[in-house]
Amino acid sequence: MLLFSNIAFLALAGSGGEQGGLLDVVPGLIFWTVITFVLLLLILKKMAWKPILNSLNEREKLIKESLEKADNARREAEKLIEENKAALSKAEEEAQKIIAQGREFSEKLRDQILIESKSEAKKIIDLANAEIARKNQEAFNQLKEEVANIAINAAEKIIRENLDADKQKNIVKKYLSDLTKN
């Protein structure tokens, strides 16, 4: 109670003294407050607020720009990835096509080669058969000659043993006819 009554009293006391009252308005203090505050305002405005606020704005702008740039870069990268994917799938398709073509071509080639080699083989076999036939003929002819020679030799032998001309004649005849029959 004492305290509050004192405060109230001081507030009412009002008129200045050495110490002054709580609610006294002192002109000197107003003067100094205005001087101090206005000077502080001017000094801080020039020294602090302008550069600090400017750099804050600058930084905010920088951050905003960086974010936008990053966003753009991300979008660009996504686009690139998309493009790459598309290119890759196209390339794969192309490769598949090429492989298929190659396979088809090789199959065709194989078939062709097979057919060619078959015909070649047939040709070779034919040639070989012809050769064999020819060789057979030759051998037969040789044999014929050989037989003729042998016959002649035999005839000579017989002639030398039997001088009988008629007999000889018959034998030769018979021999020759036999030979022609064969």
């Binding site: 000197g28 003067f31 101090t36 505050f37 000077l39 502080l40 000094i43």
Partner: peptide
């Protein structure tokens, strides 16, 4: 005018100096 420098003026100045 009585524009004596008082305790509160000193502390205002102190505040101003600290801020500067």
């Amino acid at each position: 005018f009585d524009i004596s420098i008082t305790k509160h003026v000193i502390f205002m100045w102190l505040a101003a100096i600290i801020l500067i």
